[in-house]
Amino acid sequence: MASTACFVIVSKNDIPIYEAEVGSAPKKEDLAYHHQFILHAALDVVQDLAWTTNAMFLRSVDRFNDLVVSVYVTAVLLISLTASVTHTRFMLLHDSRSEDGIKSFFQEVHELYIKIFLNPLYLPGSRIASSHFDTKVRALARKYL
């Protein structure tokens, strides 16, 4: 079954630092912006929701027609003293699927992300260009989603 899954890591100032279409549905040009729109709009909801709960996994926070946005929020990172505190948000746009799988997916990606983050050469908030990260995320997507 062709499924949609669009995974995005959003850093401070709502800058997407990693984007991947991990669904099995054939990639369509016009859908790419569609997904971005939905995910971008869902940030509004995440913004409110993130402070109301202790959980990192916020479950599905928003939906657009039959597409659901699930979000996982990392711990607050003080990127610099002047910048406002921001979570890094993992956002997955998907059609309805098991929540457990998504949760595990997010947790594993979080581990990968932390590894990237620990890299002294990685500037926090910059785009993740590591191909290793990319392949790992895609493998995780195949495993859990």
Binding site: D14, F37, I38, H40, A41, D44, V45, Q47
Partner: peptide, 18 residues
């Protein structure tokens, strides 16, 4: 309505306008 809601949901506003 998204613009009027508090807190303002600008991104939703934009998305729905689009």
């Amino acid at each position: 309505c998204y613009l009027l809601s508090s807190p303002r949901m600008l991104r939703k506003y934009g998305f729905h306008l689009i």
